[in-house]
Simulated assay, not measured.
Amino acid sequence: MRLAFQVAYIGTDFYGSQMQPGLRTVEGTVIGACRDLGLFDDWRKAGFAFSGRTDRGVHARRQICAFTTPCPERAIARLNHILPRDCECSGWAETDDSFHPRYNAQARTYRYYIYDDGSTDPHRMQEAASLLTGTHNFSHFSRLDGKNPERTILSSHIHAEDGFYIYEITAPGFLWNMVRCIVSSIIAMGRDELNADDMTALLKATPGMRHVTPAPPEGLILWDIDCGIPFTPLKGTGSMRDAAPERTRFFETMKKVNWMMD
């Protein structure tokens, strides 16, 4: 049976999501747990896949992984029991054999936490966020590596919550470092270091404009992925069951992000 799981993790102590030899990664951690449970021997033959990559230090609320296993009941009942405290499955779904969490993803949503230290104007940040909706050339906002620089942004907005400005953006797909570069430009506009004309020029990939420097990864959360399938909630028994220390650590890190950008 092929299963999909929603995976949450605090990225602080992971070297990103993608497997790397000798390093602690989210994929490596989940695959190791599956092997320990006897869910599969070879992750390649099981078709194990994540919906996308997150860089070192980036967190996730609803990353999605999928794999095929002869022991689905064991996977659903036991996987959270052996995952570490900073990684947990929050939901599961049975899928057809062709399901791939990357290629079936219809929309991805990220959030970035910006600590409100009084240096940014939220109205100007929202003005910048509003300019991003629609299809634009993100050459100045990403590392392209030969990919098409055009992306369509479905929604982009800022709201305040618990002493932070939270930037939320949704699109079918993103380029490497794209969200973090967007956040840098939004903060720069909030600090009156960029204006609307500058932002528009960046979105048109105007020659001569300087490439945007990405914001620190610690403030970024892969918030949700819509693959067009319903998930059944899983009771937390691992990392997020008693996550107060991890959450405290996360928010304390967020408070440092603004001065890291100076």
Score class of each variant (00 low, 15 high):
residue 47 G to N: 09
residue 47 G to M: 02
residue 57 G to E: 06
residue 135 T to C: 12
residue 213 T to M: 14
residue 68 T to F: 12
residue 194 L to A: 00
residue 93 A to I: 05
residue 204 K to T: 07
residue 262 D to T: 13
residue 31 I to N: 05
residue 26 V to L: 07
residue 192 D to T: 05
residue 46 A to C: 11
residue 198 D to S: 05
residue 74 R to W: 03
residue 158 I to P: 00
residue 77 A to C: 04
residue 99 F to N: 01
residue 1 M to N: 07
residue 134 G to V: 09
residue 168 E to D: 07
residue 224 D to Y: 02
residue 253 T to M: 14
residue 71 C to Q: 10
residue 62 R to L: 05
residue 50 F to I: 12
residue 115 Y to L: 08
residue 46 A to K: 06
residue 113 Y to L: 14
residue 59 H to C: 04
residue 70 P to H: 07
residue 69 T to K: 03
residue 76 I to A: 07
residue 134 G to H: 09
residue 178 M to Q: 14
residue 254 M to V: 10
residue 151 R to G: 00
residue 20 Q to D: 05
residue 188 A to S: 12
residue 165 Y to W: 15
residue 170 T to P: 01
residue 49 A to V: 07
residue 169 I to S: 01
residue 248 T to M: 08
residue 151 R to N: 07
residue 237 T to R: 09
residue 251 F to E: 08
residue 163 G to H: 13
residue 171 A to I: 05
residue 255 K to F: 09
residue 57 G to P: 00
residue 39 L to E: 01
residue 200 T to I: 13
residue 232 T to S: 10
residue 17 S to L: 15
residue 210 R to E: 10
residue 122 P to H: 14
residue 122 P to N: 12
residue 234 L to Q: 10
residue 166 I to S: 02
residue 223 W to H: 12
residue 102 R to A: 04
residue 248 T to E: 11
residue 157 H to A: 05
residue 138 F to Y: 15
residue 131 L to I: 12
residue 72 P to E: 08
residue 228 G to K: 15
residue 186 I to D: 01
residue 157 H to Q: 11
residue 45 K to N: 10
residue 215 A to Y: 09
residue 212 V to K: 00
residue 31 I to Q: 07
residue 33 A to S: 13
residue 51 S to F: 04
residue 250 F to A: 05
residue 115 Y to A: 09
residue 25 T to P: 00
residue 135 T to Q: 14
residue 228 G to F: 14
residue 23 L to G: 00
residue 181 C to E: 03
residue 131 L to T: 07
residue 31 I to L: 12
residue 97 D to S: 15
residue 58 V to A: 03
residue 37 L to T: 02
residue 262 D to L: 15
residue 20 Q to I: 10
residue 171 A to F: 06
residue 31 I to E: 14
residue 159 H to D: 10
residue 107 A to D: 03
residue 210 R to T: 12
residue 58 V to R: 01
residue 238 G to L: 04
residue 49 A to I: 07
residue 52 G to N: 06
residue 252 E to G: 03
residue 33 A to E: 09
residue 152 T to P: 01
residue 83 L to K: 03
residue 186 I to E: 06
residue 81 H to R: 14
residue 112 Y to I: 06
residue 207 P to C: 14
residue 215 A to M: 08
residue 63 Q to F: 06
residue 62 R to V: 03
residue 186 I to V: 15
residue 186 I to N: 02
residue 49 A to F: 06
residue 124 R to N: 00
residue 57 G to T: 03
residue 150 E to A: 13
residue 181 C to F: 05
residue 13 D to I: 10
residue 139 S to V: 09
residue 98 S to W: 12
residue 129 A to P: 00
residue 193 E to M: 13
residue 8 A to S: 12
residue 44 R to V: 12
residue 89 C to P: 02
residue 205 A to I: 04
residue 87 C to S: 05
residue 161 E to R: 11
residue 223 W to S: 04
residue 188 A to H: 02
residue 245 P to F: 13
residue 35 R to C: 03
residue 228 G to C: 06
residue 134 G to C: 07
residue 190 G to R: 00
residue 149 P to H: 15
residue 38 G to C: 06
residue 114 I to V: 15
residue 71 C to P: 00
residue 130 S to R: 15
residue 95 T to C: 14
residue 260 M to K: 15
residue 241 R to Q: 13
residue 217 P to S: 14
residue 239 S to R: 15
residue 227 C to L: 04
